[in-house]
Design a protein around this nucleic acid. Structure first.
Lengths: 190, 190
DNA sequence: GTCTATATTCAGATAGAC
DNA sequence: GTCTATCTGAATATAGAC
């Protein structure tokens, strides 16, 4: 049996393409060539590209939610939690060559089904809620300085992370991501 | 004679479409219907869609550069200058329905000609340079608090502005833009 | 400068055999 | 589950008349 089943291979290929070229930037023909089947066969797994986009976002939500839980479980201080989330965003960009699925899908939201638009909202809400907790922890344990409103910090940081990823990829400069996050990093002591 | 010539009307229509649907999200047929000519006629003004994208970005750069100069000329304090730039980004999003051209083009950079990718870099560099000046002014005149490194502030704020615009449009919530910028606003006193 | 007509390519999707 | 074959629509682009 193969290392990954066809359906998973298609999801992997589609996610990579969506994050590199945008959801409008790849076709079933591209996936077919990448995975090694004919494009008509893809419709057996994902009847339409719209349903593929739903499956992609669903999987992304669950994966990211799990990562957040693991960070919380393995890091006591708010500062350490936030640092690991930033690392996640940096790594997720693959050296500035790709965007996270949330940014990529947000940019072309008008060509996505309403289901996905709703999922994007849920994703952002999930991450903001998690980050609000991290900033609260950081305020209590002193590992993040200057925190007065954890929720506002989380909403700002969400935009900062997404904007930094967009800029870094646009400039083909992974370092730009870290530069944009330097001032936040300087507030973290543990 | 018409209020706007055909070429300008095409640029206006294309910019609106690109910022709403992305550069891959509109076609010459859409422009033709919007402007009221046949799609073949568009090729007389813009031989290819790639050249149209160059013209769009060129015009955007010049317009925005002019706006920045006007803000500098009309506002003495760094805080006032920065506030006006933030206003510009908020207004440019048309109540959260559109992205600025830089964000929109950055998201689909892989389907744009190299000329435009280079222009996007120049645009970001121009705005970051301008904002660095505003933060320097704000540090000197005390109108922006807590500024230690004006350039890092400018780079961060650029990402914050673009990320906030992306999030606000994604959520169809213009208020989200201001929420993401609240903490920065609180640092501005004049 | 705008038109009609057309070329070419490629997209997402379906039917039905194996 | 995968294939071949095909449909339909839409995209960018070109040629040449007016």
């Amino acid at each position: 049996m193969p290392v990954t089943d066809t359906k998973t291979a298609l999801l992997n290929s589609a996610e990579h393409a969506a994050r590199t070229l945008g959801f409008d930037g790849f076709s079933y023909a591209d996936l077919a060539e990448d995975v090694g089947i004919r494009k008509a066969s893809i419709h057996h797994h994902f009847p339409s590209k719209a349903k593929l986009s739903v499956a992609l976002m669903q999987r992304y939500y669950e994966t990211f939610n799990t990562v957040c839980s693991e960070i919380t479980a393995n890091n006591a201080s708010g500062g350490a939690q936030l640092t690991h989330l930033i690392d996640q965003y940096r790594m997720g960009s693959d050296d500035g060559k790709r965007l996270c699925l949330c940014v990529s899908f947000s940019a072309c939201r008008d060509s996505l089904p309403q289901d996905v638009v709703d999922q994007i909202s849920l994703f952002r809400a999930m991450v903001v809620k998690w980050m609000t907790g991290a900033f609260e922890n950081g305020r209590k344990d002193g590992s993040i300085s200057g925190v007065t409103d954890p929720k506002l910090e989380a909403i700002s940081t969400m935009s900062l992370l997404e904007g930094a990823q967009l800029a870094a990829r646009s400039e083909e400069s992974p370092e730009l991501f870290d530069t944009a996050l330097t001032l936040l990093h300087l507030r973290i002591s543990a």
